[in-house]
């Protein structure tokens, strides 16, 4: 029962290793290094990375910018709440407001074009979860998080909230359209 007794060899740190342990440590260490370098590698050669672009700002300032974009590029309204749908030009800055319990505005993007999407919450934490792509990003109050995204194929997508935000958390969902 010696894992629960003091080591029998007083100078246990001088006992030689068995081949099985040594070999496994070497293999495991190599694998750990591969996994470590995979992350910087993907930053250079991969397409899916967060750019580290974020700004501290106030809910009022963010909402103002969002309203300006809505005023400029609104194409229609949807749903019983009459949520504006905007179709911004490629390459432009788009502000997506997360609040209890809605996303605003609804975005209509073109496939193959890039957009700078700003994410921020007006109140509590929310989770930006784009389905069925399955891209998931945390949305903070006070931090304007900028993602440059390029939708690949047309279709109807959904943004659901996947950070628990209170009793109506499950109702916080919005469509996102990608057109040709």
């Amino acid at each position: 029962m010696s894992a629960i007794l003091p080591p029998t060899e007083r100078v246990w740190w001088k006992e030689p290793l068995d081949r099985v342990e040594l070999l496994w440590i070497v293999i495991a260490l190599v694998w750990c290094l591969i996994m470590f370098f995979m992350m910087p590698y993907w930053h250079v050669y991969g397409q899916q990375n967060l750019a580290n672009e974020a700004y501290k700002t106030s809910p009022e300032a963010f909402a103002k910018k969002a309203d300006e974009v809505i005023a400029k590029y609104k194409v229609r309204e949807e749903g019983p709440q009459k949520i504006p749908v905007v179709k911004p030009p490629a390459g432009s800055d788009v502000y997506l407001v997360a609040r209890l319990w809605s996303w605003q505005p609804i975005l209509e993007l073109e496939a193959g074009k890039s957009y700078r999407i700003h994410l921020m919450s007006m109140d509590w934490l929310h989770g930006f979860s784009l389905q069925p792509e399955n891209i998931n990003i945390e949305v903070h109050p006070g931090y304007d998080h900028v993602l440059t995204v390029t939708p690949t194929a047309p279709g109807k997508f959904s943004i659901i909230c996947n950070e628990y935000c209170g009793i109506n958390h499950h109702t916080m969902i919005s469509p996102l359209y990608v057109v040709k």
Binding site: P80, N134, I160, H170, T171
Partner: peptide, 19 residues
């Protein structure tokens, strides 16, 4: 497949914008 954690109803029943 994208199903969220801590979520009461992933069928989004009764929501105008379901998924």
């Amino acid at each position: 497949l994208g199903a969220p954690r801590r979520h009461w109803d992933i069928s989004f029943a009764g929501n105008p914008f379901g998924y």
